[in-house]
Amino acid sequence: MILSTERLTLREWRDADRAPFAAMSADPDVMRYLRALPTRQACDQWIDFQIKHFAEHGFGFWVVEDRATGAFLGATGLFKVFFDAPFTPAVETGWRLARAAWGQGIATEAARASLTFGFDELGLDEIIAYAAPANGASQSVMRKLGMIRDEASDFDHPRVEADSPLRRQVMYRLPREVWARSEMP
């Protein structure tokens, strides 16, 4: 499965993506607001999880590459939330990009392609996103995508240590009807 935008190709994972993903995940600025992937093995397991998620559900996180050069830029996509919370079951969108890809609208462009796939191909009724409160850049992308802040659904992430500043997460939602209105000419 391949998705294309004006500047990007979103595609499934290849073995050649493992090294650039691990290099990106070793950058402390990239990982500042994400759960750590401290080893190459942890990075490979994350990719393996995405491959398995694609096989089981028909979607997951795609590799984001520059359409003109084929350069690895990061990952974006959709995946099922696998922990219990008041908002589950749910499908989440997310992204992580190499620092060289920041500030160019790539996260928004790639996530928009993921959302289009989720609503148009998967028929989802809602897609959510969440981030640490200090992660203003991701929250900005969520707002650019038309996602709506839902303070009542903020939560403590059950897979993050209790004393971590990443435990608290702010919630954004994008119902199908809001997406449909935003996609109209």
Rank of each mutant, 00 (worst) to 15 (best):
I2A: 10
L3I: 06
L3H: 00
S4A: 14
T5P: 03
E6I: 08
T9S: 10
T9N: 10
L10G: 00
R11Q: 02
R11S: 02
E12A: 05
R14I: 05
D15T: 09
A16Q: 10
R18V: 13
A19P: 00
P20R: 12
P20Q: 13
P20I: 10
F21W: 13
S25P: 06
A26V: 02
D27N: 14
P28H: 14
V30F: 09
R32I: 08
Y33C: 00
Y33A: 00
R35T: 07
A36D: 07
L37Q: 07
T39L: 12
R40A: 15
R40V: 15
Q45Y: 09
D48L: 08
K52A: 15
H53S: 02
H53L: 02
F54L: 06
A55F: 12
E56L: 13
E56R: 13
E56H: 12
G58S: 08
G58C: 08
G60P: 05
G60R: 03
F61S: 03
W62K: 03
V63I: 15
V63W: 10
V64F: 05
E65I: 07
D66R: 08
T69N: 07
G70M: 09
G70Y: 07
A75Y: 12
G77R: 05
L78P: 03
V81T: 15
V81G: 11
V81L: 15
D84T: 12
A85G: 11
P86I: 09
F87S: 13
F87Q: 14
F87C: 14
T88F: 08
P89M: 10
A90F: 13
V91S: 03
E92L: 07
T93H: 09
T93A: 12
G94S: 09
R96F: 11
L97T: 06
R99A: 06
W102R: 01
G103F: 11
G103K: 11
G103E: 07
I106F: 10
I106H: 08
I106K: 07
I106E: 02
A107P: 04
T108W: 13
A110V: 06
A110R: 06
A111P: 00
R112I: 09
A113R: 02
L115T: 01
F117S: 02
F119T: 05
F119S: 05
E121S: 08
G123V: 01
D125I: 03
D125A: 11
D125E: 08
E126N: 04
I128K: 02
A129H: 04
A129G: 05
A129N: 01
A132H: 01
A132Y: 00
A132V: 04
P133D: 09
P133F: 09
G136C: 08
G136P: 03
A137W: 03
S138T: 10
Q139F: 04
Q139D: 05
V141K: 04
M142W: 01
R143V: 14
R143S: 09
L145N: 03
M147E: 04
M147P: 00
M147H: 01
D150I: 11
E151N: 13
A152C: 10
S153W: 13
D154M: 11
F155G: 02
F155K: 06
P158N: 11
R159S: 14
V160L: 03
V160F: 02
A162K: 14
D163E: 15
P165E: 11
L166K: 00
R167N: 05
Y172K: 10
L174E: 03
E177L: 12
A180V: 14
S182K: 13
E183N: 14
E183W: 11
M184R: 14
